[in-house]
Design a protein around this nucleic acid. Structure first.
Length: 476
DNA sequence: TTTTGAGTTGTTCGA
DNA sequence: GTCGAACAACTCAAA
């Protein structure tokens, strides 16, 4: 009789470029595909936007598997990961349990315990590296320590060969039938109040949509990515992040497609960005404290000035800086924000407003469809200056000039802050500098239908520089 | 072990 | 309008 392998899917919701699945097929197992969503673990619960995406990603995966003659088994959401697996194993004849490794610290901890328990019960247990291009557990510099600077990491890994798997013939998978039935709706991933209209109109959450996006991007925009990636008023970025986060697209597939273009601008542009994702996973694995604490311990002493009013105004897109407010509203509405704008809003929060980067990271975690612990942590520590980088204290983004420089047409601000739409470009990014006549002509009353700036740029910049100077003294 | 060059994405000021 | 220097000091990575 053919033996059954339980394929525990997590951040790898795909059948291609999936090492665990390929292994099962190569070794003649019947495959029982399984997903477990656990609402009750206490660390890094998925936020609302992530859950929304997850629902549709699972629905799409279910359909793919059903079409091939299988059925996706859903674990009991009331149980811990370990208990949910035990329930499945009690009701099915399973020989092997397989998964692709995740590098979130809590995930590693849990996986390690589960692996040991299953092995002691006599199951064959195997984990694979399929969510990153290189195995972070094996990535070190020539001195034998983990990289903390991107450029050497990139130089070292970009020249190493990545083994591409031959596409798997999906019709050759032989499926095991689940005994348990549980409906996707039972996971309660969708919002109970309808805040997701903007998400629906922004995204198609399926593997085929991800592949189509990858195809269009590599055909039309990959080569000029470097010229347009910083322009929030244009479609300059790839928007592949959520597909990569949930593993609807595999990193190897994406890299393969990009490298098949054989273009130096692609390599130094979007491919390099793909390695930033890689670096984020690498940092997460080697520095498991970093999602909540500064990478460098001494930055724990930084004199933040926690202020809920500042935080709330920022979250709601009511800071009075149009590029910031546009970004925060784009995030709230679509579950995504342009990368350049993420930096601008982040800089205002941690520098001008002196709010701890963790508060920003938590908000992003809850609102981004591409919320990824590695990327999110790396990004916020970078903007705060506490993470992997040279960390120059003087890097304080100017929200006015950044807006003028990158939202050149003004289309971005006009889209997300329609109350400013009638302002001429000259004042679009600094309505507080516009003459009364201009404001009146555009129908704007500062403080009434658009906020006055929460803090002056000059003042906020100086506050950030002063805080750094004070921090230098206490940490010296 | 010690030394040396370099570090995603910035801003401001003054010539 | 454009350009280079200054903003200070630290850690990393590799030789």
């Amino acid at each position: 009789m053919t033996q059954v392998a339980l394929l525990w899917l997590r951040s790898d919701l795909r059948l291609q470029d999936n090492q665990a699945l390929s292994w099962a097929v190569e070794h003649g197992y019947k495959v029982l595909p399984y997903y477990h969503h656990n609402e009750h673990s206490d660390e890094w619960q998925r936020g609302g936007a992530s859950k929304w995406w997850l629902h549709y990603a699972l629905q799409d995966l279910e359909e793919q598997i059903t079409q091939l003659g299988g059925q996706l088994l859903l674990g009991n959401p009331e149980y811990t990961s370990a208990d949910a697996i035990q329930e499945v194993l009690q009701q099915h004849q399973v020989r092997a349990v397989l998964w692709n490794r995740c590098y979130e610290p809590h995930r590693i901890k849990e996986d390690t315990q589960i692996k040991a328990a299953l092995k002691s019960q006599g199951y064959q247990v195997k984990s694979f590296n399929s969510n990153t291009l290189f195995d972070p557990t094996k990535t070190f510099n020539k001195s034998g320590s983990p990289f903390k600077v991107f450029t050497p990491f990139w130089k070292s890994l970009a020249q190493q060969e990545v083994a591409y798997a031959e596409p798997l013939d999906e019709t050759s998978i032989s499926w095991a039938s689940p005994q348990l039935q549980r409906r996707l709706d039972d996971l309660s991933l969708l919002p109970t109040i309808g805040w997701d209209a903007g998400m629906h109109s922004s995204w198609e959450v399926s593997r085929s949509a991800g592949l189509a996006r990858l195809g269009q991007f590599s055909q039309a925009r990959a080569i000029v990515y470097g010229d347009y990636r910083d322009r929030p008023d244009l479609e300059g970025t790839s928007k592949l992040s959520p597909y990569l986060h949930f593993g609807q697209l595999g990193p190897r597939e994406v890299l393969h497609q990009l490298r098949s273009l054989s273009h130096p601008d692609v390599e130094s542009g979007i491919t390099r960005q793909l390695f930033w994702r890689e670096f984020g996973q690498h940092l997460l694995y080697h520095f498991p404290h970093s999602p909540t604490q500064a990478l460098y311990e001494k930055y724990q002493l930084f004199p933040w000035e926690e202020n809920d009013q500042f935080l709330r105004a920022w979250q709601r897109g009511e800071t009075g800086y149009p590029i910031v407010d546009a970004g925060m509203r784009e995030l709230w509405t679509t579950g995504w924000m342009h990368n350049r704008v993420r930096m601008i809003v982040g800089s205002l929060l941690v520098k001008h407003l002196l709010q701890p980067w963790q508060a920003g990271a938590e908000w992003f975690w809850d609102t981004l469809v591409d919320a990824d612990l590695g990327n999110n942590t790396m990004g916020w520590q970078w903007i705060a200056g506490s993470g992997a980088d040279g960390a120059p204290y003087f890097r304080v983004f100017n929200p006015i000039t950044q807006g003028q420089k990158f939202d050149i047409t003004g289309d971005y601000v006009r889209k997300w802050c329609p109350e400013l739409a009638h302002l001429p470009n000259k004042y679009l990014h600094c309505p507080f500098d516009a003459p009364d006549l201009e404001l009146r002509a555009a129908g704007i009353i500062l403080g009434r239908n658009y906020p006055a700036p929460i803090i002056g740029h000059k003042e906020g910049r100086q506050k950030a520089l002063d805080a750094f100077a004070a921090f230098k003294e206490i940490s010296a």
